[in-house]
Nucleic acid binder design. Sequence first.
DNA 1: AATGCTCTCAACCGCCATGGC
DNA 2: GGCCATGGCGGTTGAGAGCAT
Length: 330
Amino acid sequence: MGRPPCCDKIGVKKGPWTPEEDIILVSYIQHHGPGNWRAVPSNTGLLRCSKSCRLRWTNYLRPGIKRGNFTEHEEKMIIHLQALLGNRWAAIASYLPQRTDNDIKNYWNTHLRKKLKKLQGNDENSTTSSSSQSNFSKGQWERRLQTDIHMAKKALCDALSLDKFDHSPSNPISPIPAQQPVQGPGTYASSAENISRLLQNWMKNSPKSSQLSRSDSENTQCSFNNNPSIGSGSSSSEGTISATTPKGFDSLFSESGNDFTPENTVIFQVESKLNFNAENGFLFSKPSLEESQVPLTLLEKWLFDDAINAPAQDELMGIGMGLGESANFF
DNA sequence: AATGCTCTCAACCGCCATGGC
DNA sequence: GGCCATGGCGGTTGAGAGCAT
């Protein structure tokens, strides 16, 4: 017998999501939080399979997702990380806040791979199918580990400079080192604007606009009302910062979503290596890579000691293989 | 204006990992 | 330890938009 489908295909809708479906999904998650995807279709009445709901949320509806053109910095990051990690898009995405693995994968396949190919063609380097990949097999796990260690060091170094961190509510996601702030709706999915409009009325009647403080096993949360709760992500490196906003649910998609009051809640998805904790400052969280096998506390201590002795620097672009490739690329 | 081609990216599919029983 | 349900990930597809002819 073959493996049963993830959901029975009868009566399951496929294809593009409508704004109405998006609203239903978002409002459900607003109340229940992401997770238990199996229950989502039955609880919401959506004629979608659980996987589809999860994908729609993680790749499109989730707040904090940056859309639109990739910056040069992001391009470099992707190229370099791809050289180091291969096509492990989820791992790469964990280093690029606000970008989904799907986005990165698409961008790689449609833009960067082409660019690199072209570049390699100019170099008349006959090692097609990306020389980085052919080299990649050698010492693969060492490089991965090295990458993670360097990233972890960098994150820790950033964490050490606590005074640099802006705790003001107007900067809720500043733990993301040297990254752009969470984008407003301008860069949010265009359909979100439709949703936002549709939600205007919905919000007015919304009962006590959805508190999102939840014990979500998937995400690490910290609230900005001095009630931080740090959870341990079971499988994701993403952290979720839930903060309050006067704009209510609408602020998920509004420009001024960074204002906070205790009345309403907005979630910012922060794919950061750091979790802010009002009590401890920062908690270091391991990268989402499965290769982080060392118990975190030991690694933490080691990294911490090392970070103190080593000057903080932007090591990411200068480590591992493929650096020259990346550098020459631009 | 019509047609065909190319490109983009949201969504799907299938496999694997994990956790609970 | 085996089975099952569920979530996560990477590869792939296909609809639609944009562009060229």
